[in-house]
Design a protein around this nucleic acid. Structure first.
Length: 509
RNA sequence: GCGCCUGUAGCUCAGCGGAAGAGCGACGGCCUUCUAAGCCGUUGGUCGGAGGUUCGAAUCCUCCCAGGCGCACCA
């Protein structure tokens, strides 16, 4: 929103002055000004004009805008802009005014969105692999909320399939003092469950919810496969199906899936509904509950089901655009130089509880969302624990805590973005410009479903802050009021950035 | 064989149409001053390879090479 984003407002002002769309970007080289625009290069073809010549005109028009101190042409037709201190001070004032909401979105259409995530079957504790699902999905959910949408988080689990049977059988075997079946589950947690006579499934679910709460992933609702598959009859007539080999098949290949899929097993295979049958009901159920958009967060090992979901949507005559499948690559853990296999059934696995114990909740969230979803994550568990002091998450948190320290010691309660009676220092200008990037960072991270951009940005903010802090005093300086405002705005942006990825912003460290 | 993902500095990775980056590692500096979990400097790259599109490609397209994950009447 231009009104809330000073850079967008400036771009609009420049567009008016120039008579064409001007987009601003921050050049990587400080010698190229505070902002730069490639408008001349974009416009040259359609105006049939030499880019440099057009750049001359744009630079002249831009120079007439009060915020612009100087405009220069560079390279093939870039226009580099230097802005006045007054504009930067105004911009800081706008950030302060918006407080913790700086960078929040106001969507043209507010959507009601469901993010279904984790959804691990309750056959064991949450693993680090599932934790990535939660860290990623929850951060996307937080971003969507910050962008102004209404978001609900749901956990879906299979309480009726073959894996559940194997799980219960494994626990029962331990109760009898026997080894679990070959294709069953084993590990210390199975023995623990066997020590009690209760049904292990509800106990496992409670444990999963507790673990995820600690991980700061909180669910609004839980969906059970057993309740959904019973309603298959309602939807079967709406599907394109046929019978073959005694089974009922969905003609999904006709709707974009790679193959047809069995919905109801042949009598020879037991005759019950497959998990895909429950998928059909669940998808329809989501959309009929009124969600404009249903987001599935799935590990890369499930990527084959992406086309299946859109095929189901088409068969049921829903707009497939309402279904969104987000995939993330897997997590590999190494320990003592050895790769650890992530197999729940073998019990040879790193659980999230264990991981949080070792590296802390903040570092755990950070590690699992700090990389793009398409990137396989390699984590050396020993190193992650051992090096926790060097983790970038502490670097960012430290900036927040340092600011809290300044504000604790300050005699006045609030800063004032009025220009001090001296030119802005280079570190002040850099920090303000960095803060001004936040609305775009948040918006793009949301749009691309790429929350990793937020922690990456937070490091840059901390970077600019620590440099400023090292060079200039806040309290007792001639620019104290201005710097208090700057520092408070920085604290807000850091706190918000951390919150968007589920990391806490400490007052002291 | 087919599909999805990946290949950027020694290592782990950002960047995904505009002027090659960070952290860690290595080496060398900076604490009577609001938290040194900090700051500064040095070291480091045919952005997997070959074509193509473009004024401009790490970024888009095609092919090739290498790796990961899938391709059930399991979830």
């Amino acid at each position: 929103m231009p009104a809330a984003d000073p850079v967008a407002r400036l771009a609009a002002e420049l567009s008016d002055a120039v008579g064409a769309a001007v987009e601003l970007e921050r050049p990587s080289d400080p010698a190229h000004g505070d902002y730069a625009t490639n408008a001349a290069l974009r416009l040259a073809p359609q105006r049939r004009q030499a880019p440099r010549e057009l750049a001359e005109e744009i630079a002249a028009a831009a120079a007439a805008v009060p915020a612009v101190e100087r405009a220069e042409i560079a390279g093939p037709g870039f226009v580099n802009l230097w802005l006045t201190d007054a504009w930067l001070a105004d911009a800081l004032g706008a950030i302060i005014e918006q407080g913790r909401d700086f960078g929040a979105g106001e969507p043209a259409r507010r959507e009601r969105i469901q993010v279904e995530m984790v959804s691990a079957n309750p056959t064991g504790p949450i693993t680090v692999a599932s934790a990535r699902n939660g860290a990623y999905g929850d951060s996307v959910a937080r971003l969507l909320e910050y962008a102004g949408h209404q978001v609900e988080r749901e956990y879906y689990y299979n309480d009726s399939g073959a894996q559940m049977g194997k799980f219960r059988a494994s626990v029962e075997a331990r109760r009898q003092g026997e080894e679990p079946p070959d294709d069953g589950y084993r590990g210390a947690y199975v023995d623990e469950l066997a020590a009690s006579d209760e049904d292990p499934v509800p106990r496992m679910l409670e444990q999963i919810e507790r673990t995820l709460d600690r991980f700061r992933v909180h669910f609004d609702s839980w969906a059970l496969q057993s309740r959904l598959e019973g309603r298959l009859g309602e939807f079967l007539p709406r599907l394109d199906t046929y019978e073959k080999d005694g089974a009922v098949w969905a003609r999904s290949s006709k709707y974009g899936d790679d193959a047809d899929r069995v919905l109801i097993r042949s009598p020879a295979q037991g005759g019950g509904p497959t998990y895909r049958a429950a998928d059909v009901v669940y998808l329809a159920d989501k959309l009929e509950r009124g969600f404009d958009r249903a987001i599935y967060v799935l590990g890369a090992d499930h990527h084959g089901t992406r086309n299946w979901y859109t095929a189901v949507a088409r068969m049921l005559d829903y707009d497939p655009e309402r279904i969104e499948v987000l995939l993330y690559q897997l997590v590999h853990l190494t320990s003592g130089g050895q790769q650890r296999k992530m197999s729940k059934r073998r019990g040879d696995v790193v659980f999230l509880e264990e991981f949080m114990d070792e590296v802390g909740v903040d570092a755990a969230r950070w590690y699992l969302v700090n990389r793009g979803p398409d990137q396989t994550i390699e984590i050396d568990v020993d190193l992650a624990a051992e090096r926790s002091q060097k983790n970038p998450v502490y670097y960012v948190q430290y900036a927040h805590a340092r600011i809290a320290g300044i504000l604790r010691n300050a005699s006045r309660q609030s800063g004032d973005a009025q220009l001090p009676g001296q030119p802005l220092e280079a570190e002040e200008r850099e920090l303000i410009k960095r803060l001004l990037e936040f609305p775009v960072v948040a918006a793009e991270a949301t749009e691309r479903r790429g929350p990793q951009a937020v922690p990456v940005y937070a490091i840059r903010v901390a970077d600019d802050f620590h440099r400023f802090y090292h060079e200039h005093r806040v309290l007792g300086s001639d620019a104290e009021a201005f710097r208090l405002a700057l520092v408070r705005a920085t604290q807000n942006v850091i706190a918000r950035s951390l919150d968007l990825v589920g990391v806490e912003a400490p007052e002291r460290m």
